[in-house]
């Protein structure tokens, strides 16, 4: 079973990389962008076949390693 996870920076956390990407887009003529925030995307292929169990495990992975909850939020977007 494959599960996807998106990690995003929390609202109040400075994202200098997102800012630079925004500036670059601006320079390329995409001048209607308000803000860019950069995040991370994971695809996790697990042996678990029960969707709920797999989702719970991935949630534990997010809390313990994939995300740092001081600055990041995680979202499990696709359990199939």
């Amino acid at each position: 079973m494959k599960i996807s996870v998106i990690i995003t920076l929390k609202k109040d956390v400075l994202d200098p990389q997102g800012k630079v990407i925004h500036q670059a887009l601006d320079g390329m003529g995409f001048d209607d962008v308000n803000e860019v925030r950069q995040g991370k995307y994971f695809e996790i292929d697990t042996k678990e076949t029960d969707p709920q169990k797999a989702k719970n495990k991935v949630e534990e992975m997010c809390k313990k390693l994939l995300a740092n909850l001081v600055i990041e939020n995680y979202k499990i977007i696709n359990a199939q």
Partner: peptide, 10 residues
């Protein structure tokens, strides 16, 4: 406590 982020000016 806390975290260490990327340097402000990259």
């Amino acid at each position: 406590p806390g975290v260490l982020l990327r340097n402000k000016y990259l």
